[in-house]
Amino acid sequence: MLVKIVGLLAISLLITGTVHAIEPSGEQMCSCVCPAGQSGTSTNDTNWTEPTLPSDLFGKFELHHGRGFDQIVSWLFNSTHNKYHANMTICFKRSNENSFDFTITMKDREQTVANINLKNRTELQLQKKIAVRNGAFYVGRQSFHIDQEDFLIVGVNSSKISNPPVLVFKRTGAASSAAVVAAAAATASNTATHNAVSPATRQRNTRGTSDVLPDKFYGNFELDRSENFDEYLTAKGYGWFTRKLVTFATFKKIFARTANKHLFDYSNLTSKKDVFYKNVGLGKKFEGEGLDSTKHEILFTLKDGKLFEHHKPLEEGEAKEETYEYSFDGDILLQKMSFNGVEGRRYYKKTT
């Protein structure tokens, strides 16, 4: 799994092994801090760059927590039970007087963009819009900058998103003052701004229910593939860094019978955290733990053969109100979710 995650991060950066600077060739290369064949310092051009990496970015940083994420991804970064939580690092290291290396490491696997010279970027680096602007390092729309408390903030730069989610990395090898620790704790406890519930979701929440789960839902289902899921996460404001982690986490769902035909047990098993709901009754609200490790009000309903799972967070945290729709495509359990008209689909194959 870690190999897949790191591989996808590498694809996102178009890293095919180690990338070295090469000699400029015509207009494909940038021999100065301006786009090839142009002059000036317009920050409206995404290939414009400042000539040097800010000195405070040099160093090694470990994943500390995520901020602004909803239920579907927050647990990847914030759960105290997440064994991968502190196993991701980012490092900026000088390779020579004019160049630096950018490295992402997950456990014992790493990918590096080597010898980045902002005054003489390679064609590949120009294509991926590797640049420094206003004190931040960019790979495409993904930004990396140091905040006032010396944390590395990794986020997406978009005028369409007012409060984009971010990953927060803590510098390693540096002393942590009480003020820094307190600020980090305060940041982690902030309540995320809830997105407006779409009309489609509101309609789902008010549909009538049956009180018996159909036989076809019972069994073990493992995630087989996804469609438009990356686009769905993009619509919610997540950058490539987050999307690849979520997309390649493992998921397994289990619907189990109980002695009462009107009740069932539900298990949501992932590579990061498991949740279990016992004696679930259709159309009956109950409180349970979400994947983000906070308390949720949960409601399962059934309408026209489709199962709906609605979550409403009851505690402060990163989770947002969500509704998931389950139906069948042949023998495949299909999960649908939507945001601002963008629908993501995940297909689960029945194993037993």
Rank of each mutant, 00 (worst) to 15 (best):
A188S: 14
V113C: 05
L233D: 06
F61Q: 00
I161Q: 07
G26K: 08
V33D: 07
N228Y: 01
A182W: 08
S25N: 15
R67H: 08
V342D: 05
D331E: 11
V6E: 04
R204A: 08
E287T: 09
A182M: 12
L13M: 09
F151L: 09
D274H: 11
G290C: 00
D230N: 14
T242I: 02
S39F: 05
F169I: 08
C91T: 12
N98P: 01
D331M: 11
S31F: 11
E227C: 09
K312L: 04
D147K: 06
T80P: 13
D265V: 00
S158N: 07
L152P: 10
N82M: 09
K236Q: 11
T351Y: 13
K129E: 13
D150Y: 02
T16W: 07
L291K: 02
I104G: 02
P214F: 06
E110M: 04
K303H: 15
P164G: 02
Q142W: 06
L334Y: 03
S293N: 14
K4R: 08
V139W: 05
H20K: 15
I130L: 05
T41L: 07
E222P: 10
G330F: 01
I15A: 12
A36R: 03
A256P: 15
T112F: 01
K336R: 11
A249Q: 14
M1P: 14
K119S: 07
Y218G: 09
L333H: 01
F328D: 01
A192E: 14
S271M: 01
S177L: 07
F221R: 00
K170N: 03
F308C: 06
E62P: 08
E343Q: 12
N340T: 14
A185I: 15
K60E: 14
S226C: 07
K336N: 09
S159D: 09
L53Q: 03
L13I: 04
P199T: 11
M88Y: 11
G208Y: 13
Q38F: 04
G317D: 08
K83A: 09
V280Q: 03
W75P: 07
D147R: 09
S79G: 10
V180T: 05
E318T: 13
R243A: 10
G208E: 10
L307G: 00
R121T: 07
E321G: 10
K303N: 14
G288H: 00
K320S: 15
E318D: 10
A184Y: 07
E315I: 09
G59R: 00
P54C: 02
T193P: 13
E287V: 10
P313I: 01
E297L: 09
H85N: 15
R133I: 04
D215T: 15
G239D: 07
I116W: 00
I90W: 03
L233I: 06
E322S: 14
T103R: 12
G68W: 00
E110G: 06
H310C: 10
K350P: 06
K303A: 13
S79H: 02
T187M: 15
N163H: 14
S42C: 12
G140I: 02
K129L: 02
I161S: 06
F286H: 12
C30P: 08
N98E: 04
V3S: 13
K93F: 05
D304G: 08
V113T: 05
I332E: 10
Y266W: 06
A36D: 04
K261G: 10
L124D: 05
N87Y: 15
L269R: 09
K261S: 10
T323C: 13
L334V: 06
